[in-house]
Nucleic acid binder design. Structure first.
Ligand SMILES: [Mn+2]
Ligand SMILES: [Mn+2]
Ligand SMILES: [Mn+2]
Ligand SMILES: [Mn+2]
Lengths: 221, 221
DNA sequence: ACTTTTATTTAGATTTACCTAAACTTTATT
DNA sequence: AATAAAGTTTAGGTAAATCTAAATAAAAGT
């Protein structure tokens, strides 16, 4: 596997993410938006990554990772999520603080370092946001059947992941007492704005917007 | 303190190192050599760092860090050495493996991260090569009176640091059983090539070159 | 089918961090 | 003091990663 620049790694990771979110072919605009850059820059980089055989790309046809590209993406994601575990488990950061830091730490490329880190952490399977961690060979468990709260049918649910890692959302969840493993009772669903009234065991009920519930992944208990 | 690029940080750190080694003003050539780059590139960067007020520099007169520059250098060195401690103490790397990795990790700039890391490690005072670690305020203990083995007078000595961090030297020292804290008996000094015959407690005596002894810092016991 | 809107690409610049080759200073040697 | 050698800077260029503005293609509306 060849050496990628930090910029190239960030592109690969974002392409992986958008593909995972369902995009058949990742569009120039979607990538520009995800990476907070301009479409023209994406087109430039697309040519370069195609040259390196990490993506398939034809003018106006969007982008897809090749199997080489997927391998690279999984390796970067593994680093990212292990560093997040380290920060939370060992340095007592909270889940809304670690994404930005891991965004930088993930670019230190050393197999040996990352495998030792994994051992040191007890080879964790999920990161602080509930996302699965690829193993040293790039295997990432099952695709994880993620039901977002706004589509869940059961009344009693457990939080298994959050899909948006922004500080804004995570701080909101902190304030409401929602974290990984939290058990929720759905009291009411309001059709008007798709808001949901929730209750956590000994606490008073509260309401969250659809925007929020879309980003909370749950499983029935 | 402004934001420095990785390249700028590496320059600042190298200037600090060369100043520490005694250079009144750091020369263009010395820096180019230290950073494995070309003198013309050093001149370019010198202009930029002067602009940012991190160094004082006049054409043909060499380079010196300003107090701002020193502050920046100490912060980078703190990060470098704490990561080295982490790698050795927590991930069981050996001392010859950690310099290159720390060379990358040091560029993740977060006060909070580095202070938590320091706490996590028990606020160590010296790194795996015997070098002192600046505290959060940039204080670095005493300048440490480092006697290189080739100049030491006493017969019984303890290894307190190594000044060259190359894998080559450190692996050589590993092979000879020399590490931090090792106690050495000087058996003989050969005037011809300044080689030194040494003995470590239960082991057979062996001889090291001046090249090596220059890089082993000792104190009498 | 034609037109408007949206998405994407190209053309041409910019910034950072390098480089080589040539010019210029400083220092050392006759 | 004059010349040679060594060190340093300038001039001009390259590659990566970005940008804006203009051109072109695809999609959506009528
Ligand atoms: Mn990143
Ligand atoms: Mn995460
Ligand atoms: Mn470095
Ligand atoms: Mn060190």
């Amino acid at each position: 596997m060849m050496n990628l620049s930090i910029a190239e790694e960030n592109y690969i990771k974002s392409i992986y993410k958008l593909e995972e979110e369902g995009q058949e072919a990742v569009t120039t605009n979607a990538l520009a938006n995800e990476l907070d850059t301009k479409p023209a820059s994406v087109t430039d980089m697309a040519k370069k990554l195609k040259e390196k055989q990490l993506i398939s790309y034809e003018k106006y046809q969007g982008i897809n990772l090749t199997s080489e590209g997927k391998k690279a993406a999984l390796s970067i994601i593994r680093r990212h999520r292990l560093w997040e575990c380290f920060l939370v488990d060992k340095l007592s950061f909270s889940w809304e603080e670690v994404h930005e830091l891991a965004e930088e730490l993930e670019h230190v490329r050393s197999e040996k370092l990352i495998n030792r880190l994994s051992d040191f952490l007890g080879n964790p399977q999920i990161d602080p946001h509930g996302d699965p961690i690829p193993d040293a060979l790039g295997k990432m468990g099952k695709p994880r059947v993620q039901t977002p709260l706004h589509k869940a049918k059961a009344k009693r649910l457990e939080v298994v992941a959050v899909s948006d890692k922004s500080t804004a959302l995570l701080e909101f969840l902190n304030a409401k007492g929602i974290r990984l493993g939290t058990q929720l009772d759905v009291i009411e669903r309001y059709e008007f704005d798709n808001s949901i009234e929730l209750k956590i065991r000994n606490q008073p009920a509260f309401t969250i917007s659809e925007q929020v519930s879309k980003n909370i992944m749950v499983k029935p208990i």
